[in-house]
Amino acid sequence: MLKDITLGQFFPGDTFLHRLDPRIKLVCVVLYIVALFNANSPLTYGIMFLALAVAVILSGVPLRSLTRGLKAVYIIVLFTAVMNLFFTPGTAVGATWLGRHITAEGIRAAVAMVLRIVMLITGTFLLTYTTSPISLTDALESLLRPLKKLRFPVHELAMMMSIALRFIPTLIEETDKIISAQKARGADFESGSLLRRARALVPILVPLFISAFRRADELATAMECRCYHGGQGRTALHVLRCRAVDWAVLFLCALLPAAVITLKTLGL
């Protein structure tokens, strides 16, 4: 079932990370990524791992969901590892394969890259696991607000994002339903040549597009009926407020890149 795919899915909950201000979370993830990309030694990777472990524990997200989320990128991780193993120039050690050999530098680079990718994805997953799409877009709108002075359509962008996010599950459900309906009429999506399988998608795509347009139309009418007229003078139902604890988390997260970059320049 399409329903079972996790695409950075939100897990409802009431943990410390869930309650954190979404703006702070967003900025913290950026700080985390900056720190992660500067990490280059066992010590710095250790610090990053520790920070991530604390966040995972605070989020209350079951480890199984995290590994399931990583499933989608196993191939990329594997590919990166193999490429680094064989294509990093340096002293050869061990096996030769198709004229290339594993190098000591290659092993180092492979381990570092794999760690980096896995930790990057886990970190960003934590954000979407603990933050609902709505608060995420609210946070983005709030953070981008200064750009309004430059006539950048911040509110419109945020509205478009929330609508898009809002309709992903709806359209997935719709697709599921259409697939089932066509299967009930004997449609076969699993066998035949590539061309046949592509042609088999027509009975799904046509109704799906039509229903997407219909929904867009209905949504526009509904918004107009409620006098929606863009972001001018619009206030929020849930006003985002930073508490002391949010600032404290931000401060701790800002320490991460600071520490990593300092250690890096010290050559540790």
Binding site: K177, I178, A181, A184, R185, G186, P203, P207, S211
Partner: peptide, 25 residues
Amino acid sequence: LVFQYPEYQLFEETVAQDIAFGPKN
């Protein structure tokens, strides 16, 4: 099996072709 609101799964160019989808399969 006829789903709820089955009219949303019509896709062919003509009504006859759409009705023929099942028998053709």
